[in-house]
């Protein structure tokens, strides 16, 4: 059964939640500001030509800055990145196969444009995935959903996200206990047979539905009438528009001018 890796994943989710409850300056930035900046960042990074490399480098400052100022350990991010990369790697690896035209010469070394675009895909993957992970690690699910509602996301959807998140751990735990029960009773057997699997999933589903019914009763008992009221108190502070504005300015500059190449040329001029 594929649970060992999954267990690690759950621990990671719990850890993300802990990270999100720190009180660093980054964590005090409004969730709306962080969401907008993250989306902008991803959009700008993905808007580069597909074989762009050097111009992408300055963009690493965004995740690195959040990670450092928000005290998010790099190790846990890298572990997640390793899990997230395979599909992009698999599809991207075909680029060098299908596109062998030489594109870049470094002295005697010729690099094909396929390899350039493959490397570029990997860079983007690193940038966008880390930005998304950092968004949660710096806001947390509750503040993020609050921010989403205030950005215009339907309340029903935000509530759905919160409920899903609330019962994730509980159901994962139930699933883990049930799979462990099966494993203990079938020593030496690798994996679950279809029939056992269906009954396992079926019972898990019935239990989930029974739980949903009990939750509904508990909600009704406290006056639930179909509409969840959420209270938003955090006001925007001056730092929030500054955060969005500052990064937007940087993204714009780094998008229009290739800062890394300019730096390189400057250095080489200095050396030569």
């Amino acid at each position: 059964m594929a649970f060992p890796m999954a267990v690690e994943r759950w621990l990671d989710v719990a850890r993300m939640d802990e990270l999100a409850r720190q009180g660093t300056p980054v964590h005090r930035i409004d969730a709306r500001a962080q969401t907008v900046t993250t989306l902008l960042f991803i959009g700008v990074v993905m808007s580069f030509a597909r074989d762009e490399l050097s111009a992408l480098m300055p963009f690493f400052i965004y995740p690195v800055a959040l990670m450092s100022a928000g005290r998010i350990p790099a190790a846990s991010l890298l572990r997640k990145l390793a899990v997230a990369m395979p599909f992009a790697v698999a599809v991207g690896l075909l680029n060098p196969v299908f596109d062998t035209r030489p594109a870049l010469a470094l002295g005697p070394l010729h690099v094909s444009s396929g390899w350039l675009s493959f490397l570029s895909i990997m860079l983007r993957c690193l940038l966008t995935v880390s930005a998304a992970l950092l968004l949660v690690a710096c806001t947390g699910m509750q503040r993020l959903c609050e921010g989403l509602v205030r950005l215009g996301v339907p309340r029903v959807f935000a509530v759905q996200l919160l409920f899903l998140y609330r019962y994730l751990f509980l159901l994962a735990d139930e699933g883990r206990r049930m799979t462990r029960g099966i494993e203990l009773r079938s020593p030496g057997v690798r994996g679950v047979r279809f029939r056992v699997y269906v009954s396992l999933i079926g019972h898990l589903l019935l239990r989930a539905m029974a739980r949903a019914e009990r939750i509904y009763h508990a909600m009704q008992a406290r006056g639930f009438d179909g509409r969840i009221r959420l209270q938003f108190t955090s006001p925007l502070r001056l730092a929030d528009p500054l955060f969005v504005g500052g990064w937007t300015l940087f993204f714009a500059v780094a998008r229009v001018w290739n800062l890394a190449e300019a730096l390189g040329a400057l250095l080489m001029k200095g050396v030569g």
Partner: peptide, 9 residues
């Protein structure tokens, strides 16, 4: 089961 009753974040 308090988990049925405590559903908010």
């Amino acid at each position: 089961d308090p988990d049925d009753q405590l559903f908010m974040p």
